[in-house]
Design a protein around this nucleic acid. Structure first.
Lengths: 231, 231
DNA sequence: CGGCATTAGATTGTCGACAATTTTACCCTT
DNA sequence: AAGGGTAAAATTGTCGACAATCTAATGCCG
């Protein structure tokens, strides 16, 4: 089914794109995309001169882009030695999902209190849309739909720190694992039910339950990924 | 071993210092300290030229330092406009502590599983040291002792993401609020009991309880600070 | 007199060159 | 031939100058 292939070609996150202003912005976005999508291999060294030549910008611009990538935890830099793209390891995946579970659990908790009635109505509507696609057997729900869902709840938390940490950092790294370890797999229908229950809890303005359900949802996803990783 | 005694009068975080290598490192540490301690006022604009002159380094170095400060959430940068030190607001404080509660709760949970018996023994010993100082009526326990305690549990989580997020980012912002809003107040004895119960849970290898207690501990602290803020 | 366009000043963004450090290659010694 | 030290090459760090953009001051027009 080449459906999931279609999505990979169109960076999912792009729908929420901040528009680049400076050359450093453009280079940063380009580099980030190339790293996440695997155009630049995980664990490889980033040569400033080489990138400067490839992307047609000065070394200073490349350096700024690399610095930003470092604060996203997508590259690691050592003084006087250089920068390497992070390596993808099973332990790293586990650690990443532990952080996600913690932060997104809190996001769901806060969303139950801070989302407006209108936003909750929109969220329910989104869920209906997803239900149609799931019922129709579309498998691309996984990628785009899931991101969309989590992003809305994250915004609903109204917590700028949470939003920035997850959106600027964690999500890209998560996607890097999914793409490069070839984990676009299904788990669609059960995930949909989990989403439904979370929205239910938020609609009921039940922060504790919303958090618990979100944490379970992410823990399930982690186990699912870890299992595939060990094939 | 009176470790916490030695530390106090200088910047508390310094005990865990990564040593600066490049000029950008030094400038970054210096700037971060000056911002956290209030030498540079919250909300003020950072002029690259001015800083370049004050710190005796080129603008390129200042720019790199500012970029790093941005990823710590200590300054905010806008393209073609410049960087400002973050403003300290009651809402910002609440958001910050929501993130702390979430992340440190997870850290305590993980520590209950991942800390070695030796590390737990050390933690208990640290607690005894703190008990002596509390019994002796020393009030400086608050600052150094509290930081020390939280830092050990954080390390005990063995999760590099958690450690980096809290240590490189959240903690400095937390301290900035405490210092600049003049909140070095006591709450010492109750906080000590909370610490004791958390260590108990970790010693019992009880992740759920450790997380719950840590989250409560931080929530209490938040309420305490918020109350003082509204005087 | 108030508001808007234009222009001068100041600030940030970008670049190429030089300095410092690390890595590699080569030679010498054992 | 293996190991270590030295020199050459390559890479990162730092700098000052120039370009692009924003801010403010000035003057024009309604």
């Amino acid at each position: 089914m080449p459906i999931s292939v279609v999505i990979l070609n169109r960076p999912v996150m792009t729908q929420f794109n901040e528009n680049p202003i400076t050359a450093a912005d453009k280079t940063f976005f380009q580099l980030r995309s190339d790293i996440v999508e695997g155009v630049i291999k995980a664990g490889s060294k980033l040569s400033e001169a080489e990138l400067s030549s490839n992307y047609q910008v000065s070394r200073a611009v490349v350096r700024e882009a690399i610095n930003r990538l470092e604060s996203c935890h997508l590259v690691e830099r050592k003084a006087n030695i250089g920068a390497r793209v992070v390596a993808l390891t099973p332990e790293g995946l586990v650690e990443l999902y532990q952080v996600r579970e913690s932060l997104e659990g809190m996001a769901a908790r806060l969303a139950a209190t801070n989302m407006s009635d209108d936003e909750i109505a929109d969220l329910n509507e989104l869920l209906n849309t997803h239900f149609q696609t799931v019922k129709g057997g579309e498998t691309y729900y996984q990628e785009a739909g899931d991101v969309d869902f989590h992003y809305r709840i994250l915004l609903g938390s109204k917590n700028a720190h949470l939003i920035s940490m997850l959106f600027d950092g964690i999500y890209h790294l998560t996607r890097m694992y999914r793409v490069q370890l070839g984990m676009a797999g299904p788990r669609v229908t059960t995930a949909f039910d989990e989403h439904r229950h979370i929205v239910q809890a938020i609609s009921n303005r039940d922060p504790e339950l919303a958090e618990i359900l979100m944490r379970r949802h992410i823990a399930y996803t982690q186990k699912n990924l870890a299992a595939k990783l060990n094939d």
